[in-house]
Design a binder for these strands. Structure first.
Lengths: 112, 112
DNA sequence: TTTTGATGCATCAATTATTGAGGCATATAT
DNA sequence: ATATATGCCTCAATAATTGATGCATCAAAA
């Protein structure tokens, strides 16, 4: 994803959030969207993406349906209701994370 | 650290940054400082902390010196010069992470 | 006075996500 | 013909963390 450690644990939220905005997407499309929306700075690893998608599906947060595009199969994913709730939860967790990091890294601000 | 995934990978920056501000701290002191500065919301796990401290020391980012407090030993850690550079690097990485997450999670803002 | 809670260090097996590599196939452009 | 883009996937190895456990000192409460 990046050589930085901070992205670890964030892939599932990225997937969930993109699906919240786009209704249905397939894996390769997700990789391109991430690259586009970060000006090419963030590239998600397919070796991480596909297992993550499979886990989200197994956990009941996504549903999958295969369609043919010409002769090539595409596996479209969509959020379930449970997935929508989890998206909100993870977004709140990210907000808390950022808040806590600010408290720890900018102690002067937390005292003002 | 928290039941959220987002803290994974952030422990070393927390340690480095606290040491940048406090010159020298010992492990238990770090756990208390984190708890205090996050209003008790973030508790760092000792099973993660001590291995992390040992790794930072092994990587040459910290030096350690044991002192006696009464009859109890304390292992004080301090930043090396290499550690100072790494602190700045990791801080920049966190900034980039937040920037990229904003680009991905708030696409409307990135278009405005 | 003994027991609890705080202080202070540490290790260890198990879990988990990710990396980096590789594999397979179709379509398009050179 | 050949490279590049599209599109899915698996797998061994790496790495950080969890949660449990262990040991010891010290102060305060019961």
């Amino acid at each position: 994803m990046n050589n930085s450690q901070f992205y670890k644990g964030s892939l599932s939220l990225i997937i969930l959030k993109l699906l919240e905005e786009n209704k249905r997407m397939y894996g390769y499309e997700i990789t391109q969207r991430v690259k586009d929306q970060t000006n090419g700075e963030l590239t998600i690893n397919e070796g991480a993406l596909y297992p993550a998608l499979h886990k989200l599906e197994a956990d009941g947060l996504l549903t999958a349906s295969i369609e043919q595009a010409g002769n090539r199969p595409r596996k479209y994913y969509a959020l379930t209701e449970k997935g929508q709730h989890e998206t909100a939860n993870k977004l709140a967790e990210l907000t808390d994370f950022v808040k806590h990091m600010q408290l720890l890294l900018n102690p002067k601000l937390s005292l003002g």
